[in-house]
Design a protein around this nucleic acid. Sequence first.
DNA 1: TATGAATGAGGTTTCATTCAT
DNA 2: CATGAATGAAACCTCATTCAT
Lengths: 192, 192, 192, 192
Amino acid sequence: MGSIQHPRRGDTRQCIQDVALELFAEQGYEKTSLREIAERLDVTKAALYYHFKSKEDIIVSIFKDLTRPVDGLVAWGLEQPRTLETKREILSRYSGMLTDAAPMFLFLEENQASLRDLRIGALFKERMTDIRELLEEPDAPLSNQVRCLSALFAIHAGMLTLGDDEGHPEERREAVLEVAFELVNRAHGVTE
Amino acid sequence: MGSIQHPRRGDTRQCIQDVALELFAEQGYEKTSLREIAERLDVTKAALYYHFKSKEDIIVSIFKDLTRPVDGLVAWGLEQPRTLETKREILSRYSGMLTDAAPMFLFLEENQASLRDLRIGALFKERMTDIRELLEEPDAPLSNQVRCLSALFAIHAGMLTLGDDEGHPEERREAVLEVAFELVNRAHGVTE
Amino acid sequence: MGSIQHPRRGDTRQCIQDVALELFAEQGYEKTSLREIAERLDVTKAALYYHFKSKEDIIVSIFKDLTRPVDGLVAWGLEQPRTLETKREILSRYSGMLTDAAPMFLFLEENQASLRDLRIGALFKERMTDIRELLEEPDAPLSNQVRCLSALFAIHAGMLTLGDDEGHPEERREAVLEVAFELVNRAHGVTE
Amino acid sequence: MGSIQHPRRGDTRQCIQDVALELFAEQGYEKTSLREIAERLDVTKAALYYHFKSKEDIIVSIFKDLTRPVDGLVAWGLEQPRTLETKREILSRYSGMLTDAAPMFLFLEENQASLRDLRIGALFKERMTDIRELLEEPDAPLSNQVRCLSALFAIHAGMLTLGDDEGHPEERREAVLEVAFELVNRAHGVTE
DNA sequence: TATGAATGAGGTTTCATTCAT
DNA sequence: CATGAATGAAACCTCATTCAT
């Protein structure tokens, strides 16, 4: 009476994902072994394989769960008119998602090499390309394309690279968005 | 008397570095084994250990050799007046170095997780911070710091992410610099 | 009210045996996992353990069910006079059983190593020895013993090794029996 | 001074093959783990991988080494006239090879299932087919094909199945050949 | 200047099996 | 009658590294 044996309430799958992301982010994908994940959960390695069919499957599932909002954003973006206003909205929402799932995005940035030939590599690239295409105009001059791309990277850089010593998270987001907006504005010929 | 077996002359050390970087960049640091490097050189693994004392030592030596110019740039920057002109010069030179050693920089970006607890991780971060500090004004508002940081990332993004289908390398560098300049200009209050 | 999920009626036990033999024959005993069997039946592994107490138990039960006729044959043989006619009858009946339970016999032949230390290994050997003893005369010269043994192997070889491209099954059985008869005839000194 | 450390004189590769075949024959291919082989040699598993690139590679190398004579026999057979005399010679030589490499052939027979989808499976089948084709006449009636096939199986059966209690090895070989000859004789229409 | 042989640690994965529900 | 969750053991294999020669 009283569940002493299995501290996890029933959602082991979720726990695995949580711990895994934590370790992947901390140590890198390759350097994190399933043994470590299992140990930290006080579970056997085989238990992980009950819930996921491979190491790759773990990270893919986390990725899909955490980047679902981005899919929504892309879908939404495709239905909007390609105005400057839309683009700003996209950048704004995107930066919000980045805040919410910061560890995941940081992980993605730092482990590109490891993920390249996992299924996730392609998924990530696709997602980023989708967003880029919402921002860039196909026939714009190269410098404008760089501006749009940089707007995206400014968000990533500002939110992931800037440490907590440099301002409050919310402040950071504002500053980052200011710069990102500036870049797309320019790309649209809006100088001021 | 003709060197049939090992086409490379006498500088095995250099050859190892070349092949290693090639493979590290292509597959990632963790996924590239010493066996692979040795095989591609048609040499035994033990031979690698004659020239380098560990796998880490290989990558560190490559890193040091290839980022030496950046050291020079930082040293030079420290002696200059902190004018806008200086900063533009720094960005310009830095983008040149990035062009010259593109594979190395791409490798660094994609393998952050792997390098984090190698000696190299710290070195890389230092170098980037040094440059940031040459660009940023310590007491400037946060948005201006983001602008400077983004200038740096714009260069990285534009030169490493943009594929060869998007314009000629030299064109790309120009476009990238245009945007980077714009960002530091703004950071200096130069609007137009 | 309609059995949608499990198309097989109520006799799960039988279904397990069928699928198991199919897979064992196809892939080998060791290489067939309980997971595979369960999956093909759309049932959980634990369900298998409800019906059988171990993997070995599954194969043993199949073996016993399918080789029961051979027991009958041996029993019958023991009651007959040891005439040539009896031996031909035995070979004939045996070849019929082989036709009926071909997959099982093929499985037995191809998995001897795996079965050796399962209870089944001994059972199989016993059964074959029983039949051999019905055919061979204890004090006959060695060459005659080889003839009898070969008669048995001719049946196995002809019916299991010969592909379906080499004649119609019924034709094959006739040809095989012709040769087997020849061999026991000779063993009995009947030359022509 | 004095090689105390490594009892094996330098031909570890050969030792591995010997021990491996011994264990494979004794316990079966699947049930023999590399750990066991390594332990019996007092060597680490990794050492095995220095000499062979996989478990499969070990058995394949053994197979190739030990069945090389059969290749020679087939080559020789192809150059001879397809006379009855030639066929008897083939059976005779083949039975000799079987005596020399009995453990290997026994292993092959008992582990067909395991070997089926290893490279070795195909090789083995090929070799057997080559020999069958040297014995059989393509357009002969089915019963004659069975005779030739049975001649081959008689050799296998007699030499591998018959225990050491049933006559001296050399006697067995003679008896077996007598029966095998009888079968090909018949296949050639030679009655007496 | 290099090689050949080996090691020890550890990786991911799979398996037969159990048991509370 | 069957499932869902988990285990412990063991499998094959790879890696960075060492050292006598």
